[in-house]
Design a protein around this nucleic acid. Structure first.
Lengths: 254, 254
DNA sequence: CGAACCATTGACCTCGTTCAATCACAGTGG
DNA sequence: CCACTGTGATTGAACGAGGTCAATGGTTCG
Protein backbone atom coordinates (compact mmCIF):
# COMPACT_ATOMS: atom_id res chain seq x y z
CA UNK A 1 0.00 0.00 0.00
CA UNK A 2 1.30 3.38 -0.99
CA UNK A 3 0.65 5.78 1.84
CA UNK A 4 0.32 9.22 0.30
CA UNK A 5 0.68 10.86 3.66
CA UNK A 6 4.18 9.56 4.22
CA UNK A 7 5.62 9.54 0.73
CA UNK A 8 9.25 9.59 -0.30
CA UNK A 9 10.22 12.91 1.16
CA UNK A 10 9.96 13.77 4.86
CA UNK A 11 6.94 15.65 6.24
CA UNK A 12 7.49 19.31 6.79
CA UNK A 13 5.02 20.04 9.55
CA UNK A 14 7.84 20.50 11.97
CA UNK A 15 10.07 22.26 9.48
CA UNK A 16 10.21 26.01 9.83
CA UNK A 17 8.35 28.36 7.54
CA UNK A 18 11.39 30.56 8.10
CA UNK A 19 13.33 28.05 6.06
CA UNK A 20 10.58 27.50 3.49
CA UNK A 21 12.31 26.78 0.17
CA UNK A 22 9.45 28.36 -1.81
CA UNK A 23 10.12 31.64 -0.08
CA UNK A 24 13.55 31.83 -1.66
CA UNK A 25 12.13 32.03 -5.17
CA UNK A 26 12.40 35.40 -6.83
CA UNK A 27 8.65 35.41 -7.44
CA UNK A 28 7.89 36.22 -3.82
CA UNK A 29 8.25 39.32 -1.74
CA UNK A 30 10.31 39.27 1.42
CA UNK A 31 8.55 39.03 4.75
CA UNK A 32 9.56 40.06 8.24
CA UNK A 33 10.39 37.30 10.70
CA UNK A 34 7.35 38.35 12.71
CA UNK A 35 5.07 37.70 9.80
CA UNK A 36 6.62 34.36 9.03
CA UNK A 37 6.35 33.32 12.66
CA UNK A 38 2.68 34.24 12.62
CA UNK A 39 2.15 32.16 9.50
CA UNK A 40 3.97 29.25 11.07
CA UNK A 41 1.88 29.45 14.24
CA UNK A 42 -1.25 29.43 12.13
CA UNK A 43 -0.21 26.42 10.07
CA UNK A 44 -1.80 23.30 11.51
CA UNK A 45 -0.82 20.66 9.02
CA UNK A 46 1.21 19.78 5.96
CA UNK A 47 -0.90 17.51 3.81
CA UNK A 48 -0.11 15.45 0.75
CA UNK A 49 -2.83 14.46 -1.72
CA UNK A 50 -2.56 12.27 -4.78
CA UNK A 51 -3.44 13.52 -8.26
CA UNK A 52 -7.17 13.65 -8.84
CA UNK A 53 -8.08 14.10 -5.17
CA UNK A 54 -10.57 16.79 -4.14
CA UNK A 55 -8.99 19.58 -2.13
CA UNK A 56 -12.31 21.36 -1.71
CA UNK A 57 -15.58 19.64 -2.56
CA UNK A 58 -18.19 21.66 -4.43
CA UNK A 59 -20.57 23.09 -1.87
CA UNK A 60 -18.27 22.43 1.08
CA UNK A 61 -19.06 24.73 4.01
CA UNK A 62 -16.14 24.25 6.33
CA UNK A 63 -13.28 24.43 3.86
CA UNK A 64 -9.89 25.33 5.31
CA UNK A 65 -7.46 27.75 3.75
CA UNK A 66 -4.38 26.31 2.08
CA UNK A 67 -1.21 27.37 0.41
CA UNK A 68 -0.14 25.13 -2.43
CA UNK A 69 3.39 24.09 -1.52
CA UNK A 70 4.10 21.84 -4.50
CA UNK A 71 2.21 20.43 -7.45
CA UNK A 72 -0.63 21.80 -9.56
CA UNK A 73 -4.37 22.08 -8.87
CA UNK A 74 -7.38 23.67 -10.52
CA UNK A 75 -10.64 25.33 -9.54
CA UNK A 76 -13.73 24.22 -11.45
CA UNK A 77 -17.47 24.58 -11.55
CA UNK A 78 -19.91 21.95 -12.75
CA UNK A 79 -23.41 22.22 -14.19
CA UNK A 80 -26.07 19.73 -13.09
CA UNK A 81 -25.83 17.85 -16.38
CA UNK A 82 -22.12 17.18 -16.02
CA UNK A 83 -20.61 19.94 -18.11
CA UNK A 84 -17.61 21.35 -16.30
CA UNK A 85 -15.64 24.57 -16.60
CA UNK A 86 -12.11 24.79 -15.25
CA UNK A 87 -11.87 28.33 -13.88
CA UNK A 88 -8.14 28.64 -13.29
CA UNK A 89 -5.03 26.66 -12.49
CA UNK A 90 -3.14 26.84 -9.22
CA UNK A 91 0.65 26.63 -9.06
CA UNK A 92 3.03 26.46 -6.09
CA UNK A 93 2.73 29.49 -3.84
CA UNK A 94 -0.90 30.13 -4.75
CA UNK A 95 -3.59 30.39 -2.10
CA UNK A 96 -6.17 27.63 -2.24
CA UNK A 97 -9.68 28.16 -0.96
CA UNK A 98 -9.68 31.85 -0.02
CA UNK A 99 -13.04 32.41 -1.67
CA UNK A 100 -14.52 29.34 -0.02
CA UNK A 101 -13.15 30.43 3.35
CA UNK A 102 -14.52 33.95 3.16
CA UNK A 103 -17.90 33.19 1.60
CA UNK A 104 -18.36 30.16 3.85
CA UNK A 105 -19.71 27.96 1.08
CA UNK A 106 -17.68 26.88 -1.92
CA UNK A 107 -19.47 27.64 -5.16
CA UNK A 108 -16.76 25.66 -6.89
CA UNK A 109 -14.56 22.62 -6.42
CA UNK A 110 -10.78 22.43 -6.26
CA UNK A 111 -8.98 19.33 -7.44
CA UNK A 112 -5.36 18.24 -7.35
CA UNK A 113 -3.99 17.99 -10.87
CA UNK A 114 -0.76 16.31 -9.80
CA UNK A 115 0.24 15.04 -6.41
CA UNK A 116 0.19 18.14 -4.21
CA UNK A 117 1.60 19.26 -0.88
CA UNK A 118 -0.53 21.73 1.02
CA UNK A 119 0.10 23.96 4.02
CA UNK A 120 -3.14 23.94 6.00
CA UNK A 121 -4.49 26.98 7.85
CA UNK A 122 -7.71 26.89 9.87
CA UNK A 123 -10.33 29.18 8.39
CA UNK A 124 -11.42 30.24 11.87
CA UNK A 125 -8.13 31.99 12.37
CA UNK A 126 -8.37 34.13 9.27
CA UNK A 127 -10.27 36.65 11.34
CA UNK A 128 -7.43 36.57 13.86
CA UNK A 129 -5.05 37.39 11.10
CA UNK A 130 -7.08 40.45 10.09
CA UNK A 131 -6.97 41.74 13.66
CA UNK A 132 -3.36 41.00 14.49
CA UNK A 133 -1.52 41.13 11.19
CA UNK A 134 -2.91 43.79 8.87
CA UNK A 135 0.05 43.37 6.54
CA UNK A 136 -0.83 39.74 6.00
CA UNK A 137 -4.53 40.57 5.72
CA UNK A 138 -3.72 43.07 3.02
CA UNK A 139 -1.68 40.49 1.18
CA UNK A 140 -4.48 37.97 1.46
CA UNK A 141 -6.79 40.47 -0.23
CA UNK A 142 -4.06 41.18 -2.78
CA UNK A 143 -3.75 37.52 -3.65
CA UNK A 144 -7.50 37.30 -4.00
CA UNK A 145 -7.47 40.16 -6.46
CA UNK A 146 -4.66 38.57 -8.38
CA UNK A 147 -6.65 35.39 -8.78
CA UNK A 148 -9.61 37.42 -10.00
CA UNK A 149 -7.29 39.01 -12.51
CA UNK A 150 -6.30 35.60 -13.87
CA UNK A 151 -9.96 34.62 -14.19
CA UNK A 152 -10.68 37.87 -16.00
CA UNK A 153 -8.09 36.77 -18.53
CA UNK A 154 -9.61 33.35 -18.91
CA UNK A 155 -13.08 34.77 -19.35
CA UNK A 156 -11.81 37.11 -22.03
CA UNK A 157 -10.09 34.20 -23.71
CA UNK A 158 -13.10 31.92 -23.66
CA UNK A 159 -15.47 34.70 -24.66
CA UNK A 160 -13.47 36.32 -27.44
CA UNK A 161 -10.61 34.21 -28.76
CA UNK A 162 -10.66 31.45 -31.36
CA UNK A 163 -9.63 27.90 -30.45
CA UNK A 164 -5.99 28.34 -31.45
CA UNK A 165 -5.76 31.71 -29.78
CA UNK A 166 -7.13 30.21 -26.57
CA UNK A 167 -4.55 27.47 -26.59
CA UNK A 168 -1.77 29.95 -27.25
CA UNK A 169 -3.00 32.21 -24.47
CA UNK A 170 -3.25 29.35 -21.98
CA UNK A 171 0.20 28.04 -22.76
CA UNK A 172 1.75 31.47 -22.52
CA UNK A 173 0.05 32.19 -19.24
CA UNK A 174 1.15 28.91 -17.67
CA UNK A 175 4.63 29.30 -19.10
CA UNK A 176 5.03 32.70 -17.50
CA UNK A 177 3.78 31.55 -14.14
CA UNK A 178 6.02 28.50 -14.18
CA UNK A 179 8.92 30.70 -15.25
CA UNK A 180 8.42 33.06 -12.33
CA UNK A 181 8.73 30.05 -10.04
CA UNK A 182 11.94 28.89 -11.66
CA UNK A 183 10.23 25.84 -13.10
CA UNK A 184 11.31 26.57 -16.68
CA UNK A 185 14.49 25.06 -18.08
CA UNK A 186 15.52 25.92 -21.63
CA UNK A 187 12.00 26.95 -22.59
CA UNK A 188 10.36 23.81 -21.24
CA UNK A 189 8.29 23.03 -18.16
CA UNK A 190 6.27 20.16 -16.70
CA UNK A 191 2.83 20.11 -18.28
CA UNK A 192 0.53 17.60 -16.59
CA UNK A 193 -2.83 18.43 -18.25
CA UNK A 194 -4.88 15.83 -20.06
CA UNK A 195 -6.72 16.92 -23.20
CA UNK A 196 -10.02 16.63 -21.35
CA UNK A 197 -8.78 19.10 -18.75
CA UNK A 198 -7.47 21.37 -21.48
CA UNK A 199 -10.88 21.22 -23.17
CA UNK A 200 -12.71 22.02 -19.93
CA UNK A 201 -10.44 24.99 -19.31
CA UNK A 202 -10.76 26.34 -22.85
CA UNK A 203 -14.51 25.88 -23.19
CA UNK A 204 -14.01 23.63 -26.22
CA UNK A 205 -14.97 20.05 -26.99
CA UNK A 206 -12.42 17.32 -26.39
CA UNK A 207 -12.21 16.46 -30.07
CA UNK A 208 -11.72 20.00 -31.28
CA UNK A 209 -9.16 20.65 -28.58
CA UNK A 210 -7.18 17.63 -29.71
CA UNK A 211 -7.29 18.65 -33.38
CA UNK A 212 -6.33 22.25 -32.75
CA UNK A 213 -3.65 21.25 -30.25
CA UNK A 214 -1.89 18.93 -32.69
CA UNK A 215 -2.27 21.43 -35.52
CA UNK A 216 -0.38 24.01 -33.48
CA UNK A 217 2.15 21.40 -32.44
CA UNK A 218 2.76 20.41 -36.05
CA UNK A 219 2.99 24.08 -37.01
CA UNK A 220 6.03 24.27 -34.73
CA UNK A 221 4.59 26.40 -31.94
CA UNK A 222 5.55 23.99 -29.21
CA UNK A 223 6.48 20.38 -28.50
CA UNK A 224 5.34 17.98 -25.82
CA UNK A 225 7.28 14.95 -24.70
CA UNK A 226 7.76 13.15 -21.43
CA UNK A 227 5.12 15.35 -19.83
CA UNK A 228 7.15 18.46 -20.51
CA UNK A 229 6.06 21.22 -22.85
CA UNK A 230 8.67 23.18 -24.78
CA UNK A 231 7.84 26.57 -26.25
CA UNK A 232 9.53 26.68 -29.66
CA UNK A 233 8.41 30.13 -30.68
CA UNK A 234 7.50 32.27 -27.69
CA UNK A 235 7.28 35.45 -29.74
CA UNK A 236 4.77 33.91 -32.13
CA UNK A 237 2.74 32.37 -29.34
CA UNK A 238 2.57 35.73 -27.62
CA UNK A 239 1.38 37.41 -30.75
CA UNK A 240 -1.17 34.74 -31.49
CA UNK A 241 -2.62 35.23 -28.04
CA UNK A 242 -2.59 38.99 -28.60
CA UNK A 243 -0.87 39.48 -25.28
CA UNK A 244 1.67 42.13 -24.52
CA UNK A 245 4.60 41.25 -22.33
CA UNK A 246 3.95 41.98 -18.72
CA UNK A 247 5.68 42.90 -15.52
CA UNK A 248 7.36 40.41 -13.21
CA UNK A 249 6.50 42.11 -9.93
CA UNK A 250 6.90 40.09 -6.78
CA UNK A 251 3.87 38.82 -4.97
CA UNK A 252 3.22 37.84 -1.36
CA UNK A 253 3.60 34.25 -0.15
CA UNK A 254 1.46 33.32 2.84
CA UNK B 1 -24.59 73.37 -20.66
CA UNK B 2 -25.62 70.44 -18.59
CA UNK B 3 -23.29 70.10 -15.63
CA UNK B 4 -23.17 66.42 -14.70
CA UNK B 5 -21.67 67.25 -11.34
CA UNK B 6 -24.65 69.26 -10.22
CA UNK B 7 -27.58 67.41 -11.73
CA UNK B 8 -31.19 67.53 -10.71
CA UNK B 9 -30.82 66.05 -7.26
CA UNK B 10 -28.69 67.60 -4.52
CA UNK B 11 -25.14 66.43 -3.90
CA UNK B 12 -24.70 64.09 -1.00
CA UNK B 13 -21.12 64.79 -0.02
CA UNK B 14 -22.28 66.52 3.09
CA UNK B 15 -25.07 64.04 3.74
CA UNK B 16 -24.29 61.45 6.35
CA UNK B 17 -23.35 57.87 5.55
CA UNK B 18 -25.25 57.15 8.75
CA UNK B 19 -28.38 58.14 6.87
CA UNK B 20 -27.39 56.40 3.65
CA UNK B 21 -30.61 55.21 2.01
CA UNK B 22 -28.83 52.23 0.42
CA UNK B 23 -27.94 50.96 3.85
CA UNK B 24 -31.61 50.48 4.67
CA UNK B 25 -32.05 47.84 1.98
CA UNK B 26 -32.44 44.33 3.23
CA UNK B 27 -29.53 43.20 1.04
CA UNK B 28 -26.99 44.74 3.39
CA UNK B 29 -25.68 43.78 6.78
CA UNK B 30 -25.93 46.20 9.66
CA UNK B 31 -22.86 48.14 10.68
CA UNK B 32 -21.82 49.74 13.93
CA UNK B 33 -21.86 53.53 14.09
CA UNK B 34 -18.10 53.42 14.50
CA UNK B 35 -17.67 51.64 11.22
CA UNK B 36 -20.02 53.96 9.41
CA UNK B 37 -18.22 56.99 10.82
CA UNK B 38 -14.92 55.57 9.60
CA UNK B 39 -16.36 55.09 6.15
CA UNK B 40 -17.72 58.60 6.14
CA UNK B 41 -14.37 60.04 7.19
CA UNK B 42 -12.73 58.15 4.37
CA UNK B 43 -15.19 59.33 1.73
CA UNK B 44 -13.75 62.28 -0.14
CA UNK B 45 -16.30 62.87 -2.84
CA UNK B 46 -19.66 62.00 -4.24
CA UNK B 47 -19.34 61.98 -8.01
CA UNK B 48 -21.91 61.75 -10.77
CA UNK B 49 -20.97 60.44 -14.21
CA UNK B 50 -23.09 60.19 -17.33
CA UNK B 51 -23.81 56.91 -19.07
CA UNK B 52 -20.86 55.73 -21.15
CA UNK B 53 -18.22 57.53 -19.09
CA UNK B 54 -15.09 55.68 -17.99
CA UNK B 55 -14.94 55.13 -14.25
CA UNK B 56 -11.56 53.42 -14.49
CA UNK B 57 -9.50 53.57 -17.67
CA UNK B 58 -7.83 50.36 -18.81
CA UNK B 59 -4.26 50.45 -17.50
CA UNK B 60 -4.92 53.25 -15.01
CA UNK B 61 -2.39 53.20 -12.19
CA UNK B 62 -3.84 55.57 -9.65
CA UNK B 63 -7.45 54.43 -9.63
CA UNK B 64 -9.47 55.31 -6.55
CA UNK B 65 -11.83 52.96 -4.80
CA UNK B 66 -15.54 53.57 -5.23
CA UNK B 67 -18.85 52.32 -4.03
CA UNK B 68 -21.56 52.43 -6.64
CA UNK B 69 -24.34 54.47 -5.03
CA UNK B 70 -26.81 54.43 -7.89
CA UNK B 71 -26.92 53.26 -11.50
CA UNK B 72 -25.24 50.36 -13.29
CA UNK B 73 -21.68 49.89 -14.52
CA UNK B 74 -19.61 47.08 -15.98
CA UNK B 75 -16.03 45.83 -15.92
CA UNK B 76 -14.54 44.89 -19.28
CA UNK B 77 -11.33 43.82 -20.92
CA UNK B 78 -10.32 44.59 -24.50
CA UNK B 79 -7.98 42.82 -26.89
CA UNK B 80 -5.64 44.88 -29.07
CA UNK B 81 -7.80 44.28 -32.14
CA UNK B 82 -10.91 45.71 -30.54
CA UNK B 83 -12.70 42.60 -29.34
CA UNK B 84 -14.13 43.24 -25.92
CA UNK B 85 -15.34 41.01 -23.11
CA UNK B 86 -17.65 42.36 -20.45
CA UNK B 87 -16.52 40.60 -17.28
CA UNK B 88 -19.36 41.44 -14.91
CA UNK B 89 -21.99 44.03 -14.15
CA UNK B 90 -21.99 46.31 -11.13
CA UNK B 91 -25.18 47.30 -9.33
CA UNK B 92 -25.80 49.74 -6.48
CA UNK B 93 -23.86 48.81 -3.35
CA UNK B 94 -21.10 47.07 -5.26
CA UNK B 95 -17.47 48.03 -4.80
CA UNK B 96 -15.86 49.53 -7.88
CA UNK B 97 -12.14 49.28 -8.47
CA UNK B 98 -10.98 47.09 -5.60
CA UNK B 99 -8.82 44.96 -7.87
CA UNK B 100 -7.34 48.03 -9.52
CA UNK B 101 -6.65 49.60 -6.12
CA UNK B 102 -4.90 46.57 -4.69
CA UNK B 103 -2.93 45.51 -7.75
CA UNK B 104 -2.02 49.14 -8.51
CA UNK B 105 -2.65 48.79 -12.23
CA UNK B 106 -6.03 48.10 -13.74
CA UNK B 107 -5.92 45.15 -16.09
CA UNK B 108 -9.45 46.07 -17.08
CA UNK B 109 -11.68 49.07 -17.64
CA UNK B 110 -14.86 50.04 -15.83
CA UNK B 111 -17.57 51.99 -17.62
CA UNK B 112 -20.82 53.55 -16.49
CA UNK B 113 -23.76 51.78 -18.13
CA UNK B 114 -26.30 54.34 -16.96
CA UNK B 115 -25.76 57.63 -15.21
CA UNK B 116 -24.06 56.66 -11.95
CA UNK B 117 -23.43 58.16 -8.54
CA UNK B 118 -20.21 57.10 -6.87
CA UNK B 119 -18.87 57.41 -3.34
CA UNK B 120 -15.15 58.06 -3.73
CA UNK B 121 -12.51 56.69 -1.35
CA UNK B 122 -8.78 57.41 -1.75
CA UNK B 123 -6.83 54.27 -2.48
CA UNK B 124 -4.03 55.45 -0.23
CA UNK B 125 -6.27 55.05 2.77
CA UNK B 126 -7.13 51.43 2.12
CA UNK B 127 -4.03 50.50 4.04
CA UNK B 128 -5.25 52.68 6.90
CA UNK B 129 -8.46 50.77 6.89
CA UNK B 130 -6.63 47.46 7.22
CA UNK B 131 -4.75 48.74 10.25
CA UNK B 132 -7.57 50.50 12.05
CA UNK B 133 -10.71 48.69 11.01
CA UNK B 134 -10.14 44.96 10.60
CA UNK B 135 -13.88 44.37 10.37
CA UNK B 136 -14.08 46.60 7.31
CA UNK B 137 -10.91 45.10 5.87
CA UNK B 138 -12.43 41.65 6.20
CA UNK B 139 -15.57 42.82 4.45
CA UNK B 140 -13.52 44.38 1.69
CA UNK B 141 -11.89 40.99 1.10
CA UNK B 142 -15.31 39.37 1.34
CA UNK B 143 -16.71 41.63 -1.34
CA UNK B 144 -13.72 40.87 -3.53
CA UNK B 145 -14.40 37.17 -3.20
CA UNK B 146 -18.06 37.68 -3.99
CA UNK B 147 -17.13 39.47 -7.21
CA UNK B 148 -14.83 36.60 -8.11
CA UNK B 149 -17.73 34.25 -7.51
CA UNK B 150 -19.86 36.17 -10.00
CA UNK B 151 -17.09 36.02 -12.57
CA UNK B 152 -16.74 32.28 -12.00
CA UNK B 153 -20.39 32.00 -12.96
CA UNK B 154 -19.93 34.07 -16.08
CA UNK B 155 -16.90 32.06 -17.14
CA UNK B 156 -18.85 28.85 -16.69
CA UNK B 157 -21.68 30.31 -18.70
CA UNK B 158 -19.52 31.50 -21.57
CA UNK B 159 -17.46 28.32 -21.60
CA UNK B 160 -20.22 25.74 -21.28
CA UNK B 161 -23.68 27.06 -22.01
CA UNK B 162 -25.43 27.50 -25.36
CA UNK B 163 -26.54 30.93 -26.54
CA UNK B 164 -30.06 30.67 -25.09
CA UNK B 165 -28.79 29.22 -21.85
CA UNK B 166 -26.35 32.10 -21.51
CA UNK B 167 -29.09 34.65 -21.99
CA UNK B 168 -31.32 32.88 -19.48
CA UNK B 169 -28.48 32.70 -16.96
CA UNK B 170 -27.60 36.38 -17.36
CA UNK B 171 -31.18 37.53 -16.99
CA UNK B 172 -31.74 35.37 -13.93
CA UNK B 173 -28.55 36.57 -12.32
CA UNK B 174 -29.35 40.24 -12.89
CA UNK B 175 -32.94 39.71 -11.82
CA UNK B 176 -31.85 38.23 -8.51
CA UNK B 177 -29.37 40.96 -7.81
CA UNK B 178 -31.89 43.66 -8.67
CA UNK B 179 -34.47 41.90 -6.52
CA UNK B 180 -32.17 41.85 -3.51
CA UNK B 181 -31.89 45.63 -3.86
CA UNK B 182 -35.64 46.09 -4.00
CA UNK B 183 -35.47 47.16 -7.63
CA UNK B 184 -37.97 44.57 -8.83
CA UNK B 185 -41.68 45.43 -9.06
CA UNK B 186 -44.11 42.73 -10.19
CA UNK B 187 -41.37 40.69 -11.84
CA UNK B 188 -39.91 43.60 -13.79
CA UNK B 189 -36.81 45.72 -13.41
CA UNK B 190 -34.92 48.44 -15.31
CA UNK B 191 -32.77 46.83 -17.96
CA UNK B 192 -30.45 49.35 -19.62
CA UNK B 193 -28.24 47.05 -21.75
CA UNK B 194 -27.86 47.47 -25.49
CA UNK B 195 -27.60 44.34 -27.59
CA UNK B 196 -23.97 45.09 -28.26
CA UNK B 197 -23.26 45.09 -24.54
CA UNK B 198 -25.28 41.90 -24.14
CA UNK B 199 -23.22 40.31 -26.91
CA UNK B 200 -19.94 41.40 -25.32
CA UNK B 201 -21.00 39.97 -21.98
CA UNK B 202 -22.19 36.67 -23.44
CA UNK B 203 -19.25 36.09 -25.76
CA UNK B 204 -21.56 36.00 -28.78
CA UNK B 205 -21.80 38.03 -31.96
CA UNK B 206 -24.21 40.94 -32.06
CA UNK B 207 -26.36 39.30 -34.73
CA UNK B 208 -26.71 35.98 -33.01
CA UNK B 209 -27.44 37.67 -29.71
CA UNK B 210 -30.25 39.61 -31.33
CA UNK B 211 -31.75 36.54 -32.96
CA UNK B 212 -31.58 34.38 -29.87
CA UNK B 213 -32.84 37.20 -27.68
CA UNK B 214 -35.95 37.78 -29.76
CA UNK B 215 -36.54 34.05 -30.11
CA UNK B 216 -36.67 33.72 -26.32
CA UNK B 217 -38.81 36.81 -26.11
CA UNK B 218 -41.29 35.42 -28.62
CA UNK B 219 -41.25 32.10 -26.78
CA UNK B 220 -42.69 33.94 -23.80
CA UNK B 221 -39.69 33.82 -21.47
CA UNK B 222 -39.67 37.54 -20.85
CA UNK B 223 -40.80 40.87 -22.24
CA UNK B 224 -38.97 44.17 -22.66
CA UNK B 225 -40.67 47.54 -22.93
CA UNK B 226 -39.83 51.03 -21.86
CA UNK B 227 -36.37 49.89 -20.80
CA UNK B 228 -37.84 47.49 -18.25
CA UNK B 229 -37.54 43.73 -18.47
CA UNK B 230 -40.32 41.52 -17.14
CA UNK B 231 -39.67 37.89 -16.33
CA UNK B 232 -42.75 35.99 -17.51
CA UNK B 233 -41.64 32.53 -16.52
CA UNK B 234 -38.98 32.63 -13.80
CA UNK B 235 -39.20 28.91 -13.15
CA UNK B 236 -38.50 28.07 -16.78
CA UNK B 237 -35.72 30.60 -17.04
CA UNK B 238 -34.10 29.11 -13.98
CA UNK B 239 -34.29 25.66 -15.41
CA UNK B 240 -32.96 26.74 -18.77
CA UNK B 241 -29.95 28.25 -17.06
CA UNK B 242 -29.55 25.07 -15.01
CA UNK B 243 -29.32 27.12 -11.85
CA UNK B 244 -30.62 26.07 -8.50
CA UNK B 245 -32.21 28.69 -6.29
CA UNK B 246 -29.75 30.30 -3.96
CA UNK B 247 -29.48 31.96 -0.60
CA UNK B 248 -30.32 35.57 0.10
CA UNK B 249 -27.66 36.20 2.71
CA UNK B 250 -26.83 39.78 3.55
CA UNK B 251 -23.64 41.31 2.38
CA UNK B 252 -21.51 44.19 3.63
CA UNK B 253 -21.92 47.72 2.27
CA UNK B 254 -18.83 49.90 2.49
C1' DC C 1 -5.11 -11.17 -22.20
C1' DG C 2 -8.77 -7.93 -21.08
C1' DA C 3 -9.98 -3.47 -18.97
C1' DA C 4 -9.41 1.39 -18.52
C1' DC C 5 -7.80 5.54 -19.86
C1' DC C 6 -6.06 8.78 -23.05
C1' DA C 7 -4.92 10.66 -27.68
C1' DT C 8 -5.99 10.86 -32.54
C1' DT C 9 -8.52 11.08 -36.84
C1' DG C 10 -12.46 10.97 -40.21
C1' DA C 11 -17.25 12.11 -41.53
C1' DC C 12 -21.06 14.79 -40.88
C1' DC C 13 -23.86 18.36 -39.05
C1' DT C 14 -25.25 22.62 -36.53
C1' DC C 15 -24.69 26.53 -33.96
C1' DG C 16 -22.95 30.71 -34.31
C1' DT C 17 -20.41 34.17 -37.43
C1' DT C 18 -20.09 37.34 -41.19
C1' DC C 19 -21.87 40.32 -44.65
C1' DA C 20 -25.52 43.12 -45.88
C1' DA C 21 -29.86 45.36 -46.11
C1' DT C 22 -33.78 47.40 -43.74
C1' DC C 23 -36.29 49.70 -40.12
C1' DA C 24 -37.26 52.57 -36.04
C1' DC C 25 -36.15 56.55 -33.54
C1' DA C 26 -34.15 60.14 -31.79
C1' DG C 27 -31.69 64.73 -32.51
C1' DT C 28 -30.51 68.76 -35.17
C1' DG C 29 -30.05 72.09 -38.45
C1' DG C 30 -32.17 74.12 -42.72
C1' DC D 1 -42.05 71.37 -41.30
C1' DC D 2 -38.79 68.20 -43.39
C1' DA D 3 -34.34 66.36 -44.93
C1' DC D 4 -30.07 64.53 -42.80
C1' DT D 5 -27.49 61.87 -39.64
C1' DG D 6 -26.29 58.56 -36.14
C1' DT D 7 -27.37 54.82 -33.18
C1' DG D 8 -29.56 50.61 -32.10
C1' DA D 9 -32.60 46.56 -33.37
C1' DT D 10 -33.98 43.14 -36.70
C1' DT D 11 -33.79 39.88 -40.41
C1' DG D 12 -32.06 37.15 -44.49
C1' DA D 13 -28.52 34.43 -46.81
C1' DA D 14 -24.14 32.05 -47.06
C1' DC D 15 -20.29 30.37 -44.78
C1' DG D 16 -17.22 28.30 -41.40
C1' DA D 17 -15.56 27.15 -36.77
C1' DG D 18 -16.46 24.03 -33.69
C1' DG D 19 -19.54 20.07 -31.95
C1' DT D 20 -21.04 15.22 -32.17
C1' DC D 21 -20.58 10.45 -33.34
C1' DA D 22 -17.69 6.76 -34.11
C1' DA D 23 -13.68 4.04 -34.90
C1' DT D 24 -8.70 3.16 -34.02
C1' DG D 25 -4.31 2.78 -31.44
C1' DG D 26 -1.15 3.28 -27.69
C1' DT D 27 -0.20 2.59 -22.54
C1' DT D 28 -0.56 1.03 -18.27
C1' DC D 29 -2.20 -2.15 -14.99
C1' DG D 30 -4.36 -6.15 -12.91
Amino acid sequence: MHDTHHGGRPRRLGASCLACPLRLKSAFKDKTDDEIRFIQAMKIDHRILRAGADIIHPGEEEAELYTLFSGWAFRYKSLPDGRRQILNFLLPGDLVGLQASLLSAAEHGIEALTEVELCVFPRKRIWDLFVKMPTLAYELAWLGSREECLIDDNLTSVGQRSASERIAALIISLYRRADALGLVTSNSFAFPLTQQQLADALGLSLVHTSKTWSRLRKAGLFALSGGRLTLLNPRLTNRMAAIYDQEGARRPLI
